[in-house]
Design a protein around this nucleic acid. Structure first.
Lengths: 209, 209, 209, 209
DNA sequence: AATGAATGAGAATTCATTCAT
DNA sequence: AATGAATGAATTCTCATTCAT
């Protein structure tokens, strides 16, 4: 309880750790996991390589932390977007738009880190596993959202529907943001929205442009 | 001006080159681009490291060749599948199934190489570019297929529709084959098929289970 | 932006760097630039190959440092020798001897490194350039020396004279020290001295044996 | 004696060999011994690498052959130049100019190969030895030339004089042709000529500009 | 806690040379 | 004699990680 306690140092410690995480996210986004080395990260964070390794066992562990934090931010965004409005008050088209927007928003967080996240998802089992878990959560959330308007839906297998919809949106987002699709963004998003709306909702709602 | 790398002029030479390509595909599938080194590939191919470098400037160039060959095989499969039957004689549900099957078949070629191909698509601009070009071709093919039954379709913007459908299928395939989706494969495929059918076809056809 | 190679900040670091420089000079002298590899230099310096490359971008850069340091030592020797005595008090023959001796002394520093230095001067543009710059300095110094006794000289174009004299001495030194000239060293040095003396000085001084 | 004899093939053989020698000289001049590899030489000569090695045991042996041939050409040039005129009929200044010109001419043969020849002279004992032997011959020739006007000379130790003169000329030639001396070529050559003339010839002849 | 010097395994790549055809 | 495919030792250089201070 004396002022000699190391609490201020712990504060500084947290800051150091955060600065490494921030530097890592920046570097991984810009140059990828394999294109970035630990010294670069440390110096970008304004920290010695020795400190780097006292905070993180190795580069991979650091990536996992950055990745998890990023995914948590994404989840939070999605939840916030989807819960922003009372969706049962909205029309089918609007709901679909809201779903798409919520997933788009998640990817706007940092398109470049998103790209590298996909690299690692496909490349590394541990990353893949965490990614899968997150997808499960997003799916559950989407199922929850849909359940709120279940009586207006055509589809009955909400879980499968949510999975398929999420996949369609995710890949479309990538094709726009990462693979610069040759078509105009609006044409694709319109098509995507229409596909999802007609799939999910009963004809009465699906009819509307 | 002799080229940097050897141009096969003898039968033996062609065999060596091919064995390197085959070994590379195998190793890249199993251990990824970064997890495989040139010596391993050479010895897997039963060839000296010197030969490796006399046929391929470096590992990246080798990857590009393997990748391009793989993508060409995929394209061929897709075309063959989609042109197997006279599609204008088929019902909407069957057409959709055929489209899904054709894209699934492409990924059955080698799911593991497919995975690594995605890694590199997201990681490397040159790979991304080639991938984008192939997607364009697949899209064009799909648009062609749809045009054959245009009068039965609801959608009018065929290109955007084709893009969205291809995206939905591709990501769903990945979620099944690579990310071991928690749901049973059939539930997902059924949902996917229904989504696409209702999106593309007029109600008369879409009605059918 | 951290520099490519380590800038010594600790005492230990400076010692390591110096030990690499010393080992390099030794190895280059003994086996030449192309006959020595970085591993040998590192182990001769009692240092890991990793340290080698953290101090020097590559072998060539290391050579340049060794070379520049060597040339600086040479310059210092020459200046010291030529300024050792008040030359205006000396006779022409003695002055010439002093000049020859000063250049000989420079080459006594390390005849073997001298040899390799010549190899690289002829082989590499960057080395050549630095060598040329040093020659310019030596020439300027020699012109300065001559100017002190200008009224006793025959030659009027001091710069050209200095250049020619320096060339004559340098090649003669090499023919003695590197190419083991078939004649006895003294006969050659005597001839050289006489040539220079008669060239530079008015007859009154040149007469003297 | 029948037309089936391999004589034409021997002719072709000689041509192949010569084309390799020519290609080697070209490549060594342009990129140096270490900067050129055997495949390059072979392909420049329009010959397979297999043939290359059936004509020359290795790259070093090839260099020696090219080097020796070059030096022989140089010697021939020097002899021709020095014997072009009846030198006993010439004035001292003209004789000196003729000597300088003869040595300059030798270096004009191929300044770039000359440069690489120096590299190898300093770097390789075998090359050095051959070079020394050639210098001896040039020296003997120069002594012979001087002896023809011995009664007009000041110097008595002709061998030492010849050595020193040859050295002075050689280094000066290099400083002009290889190390781009900062002074104008004529000023240096004039100084060189004057130095040699005053050294070699009695005052009566040396007086003349 | 922090620093940065040191490590060395390992990856990529080259090239002189051999040898089967 | 000619060819060019094949070899693999040798070299350069990188980078994740450790450890003495």
């Amino acid at each position: 309880m004396s002022p000699e306690t190391r609490i201020p140092q712990q504060q500084r410690s947290i800051e150091t750790r955060d600065s490494i995480l921030a530097a890592a996210r920046e570097m991984f986004s810009a140059k990828g996991f394999h294109g970035t080395n630990s010294k670069e990260i440390a110096s970008q964070a304004g920290v010695s390589i020795g400190s780097f390794y006292s905070y993180f066992k190795n580069k991979k562990v650091l990536f996992m932390e950055v990745f998890k934090a990023y995914k948590q931010e994404q989840i939070i965004r999605i939840l916030r977007e989807q819960n922003r409005q009372r969706i049962e008050t909205l029309g089918g088209a609007t709901i679909v738009r809201a779903i798409i927007e919520s997933l788009l928003a998640a990817h706007d967080l940092s398109p470049e880190f998103d790209r590298e996240a996909m690299v690692m998802c496909y490349a590394d089992p541990e990353v893949k596993e965490y990614h899968t878990e997150i997808e499960r959560q997003i799916n559950a959330q989407l199922v929850g959202t849909l359940r709120q308007v279940e009586d207006r839906l055509r589809v009955t297998d909400l879980e499968a529907a949510a999975a398929v919809v999420a996949n369609a949106v995710e890949m479309t987002v990538h094709s726009i943001k990462i693979f610069d699709a040759p078509l105009h963004r609006d044409r694709i998003i319109d098509a995507l929205a229409e596909m999802i709306r007609r799939f999910l909702f009963k004809d009465s709602e699906a009819m509307t442009g």
